[in-house]
Amino acid sequence: MPVLEVRNIRKTFGKTEVLKGIDFMLEKGGALSIIGSSGSGKTTLLRCLNFLERPDAGVITVNGETLLDCSKPSTMSESQIRKKRLHFGLVFQSFNLFPQYTALENVMLAPVLLSKENHVKNFDRSALKSEAEELFASIGLSDRMKNYPHQLSGGQQQRVAIARALIMHPDILCFDEPTSALDPELTGEVLKVIRGLSEKNTTMIIVTHEMEFARDVASHVIFMDSGVICEQGNPQEVFNHPKEERTKQFLSRYSNS
């Protein structure tokens, strides 16, 4: 059974139809790369999966449970969605760390607040802290836990953002162009962390313009164009033997640059 099943997602902003019916599946432990030019709808799709946008139509199923069915308004209420969105994690292009908290506090804030919201008795703060510290070790930032975001480089901030998403144990971790806001020399450290996650079979969806990285890490690739999935398949197929003319054009623009 696939961990994620997306059927017929549609989204319109005003008169612009950004997603024109998106269908795909993702296996547990798989890494899906979504590529395509700016404005093709990649980010909107990711935002729909994280319920930052409400799709106009479509069904999202995780582990067999229907999280969102646009034909059933009861699945779309704010409180329902808040619980369901924890199936997904999202790492933003612009990091969005909370500036008033240290790196460690950034990672621990959401689990602490969630336990308060759920009235968890005997909440084990020290267990959470040691889990956070392990995450910091895994992203190579054990020595920067006490730093505030503005004291960290972009690459370090993005790695903290990844740890912040991981501590919620999402079923599917989404990345929205995680290296696009970084100086070129800082992309490597972030990609290395994501690569490490894929080696540990973390289920991921990665929207990226790093073609080489998408090919290396992904188990499955989707090429989007003008709000539809133009082509999909395993990385070898899509990158080395694209069938669609639009895919060929897109990839040639990248190989030339």
């Binding site: 994280n50 319920f51 930052l52 704010e78 808040r82 619980k83 969105r85 924890l86 997904f88 994690g89 999202l90 933003f92 612009s94 969005n96 760390l97 909370f98 500036p99 008033q100 804030l109 959401a110 607040l113 969630l114 919201e117 912040r164 998403a165 919620m168």
Partner: peptide, 26 residues
């Protein structure tokens, strides 16, 4: 920035928590 609220939302925080723990001090 709206990204602060969105970061709180995807981490499962309530709107109230986001206001008091994320937005207010900023």
């Amino acid at each position: 920035p709206i990204g602060q609220t969105e970061a709180g939302l995807v981490l499962g925080m309530t709107r109230r928590q986001i206001f008091f723990h994320v937005t207010l001090l900023q």
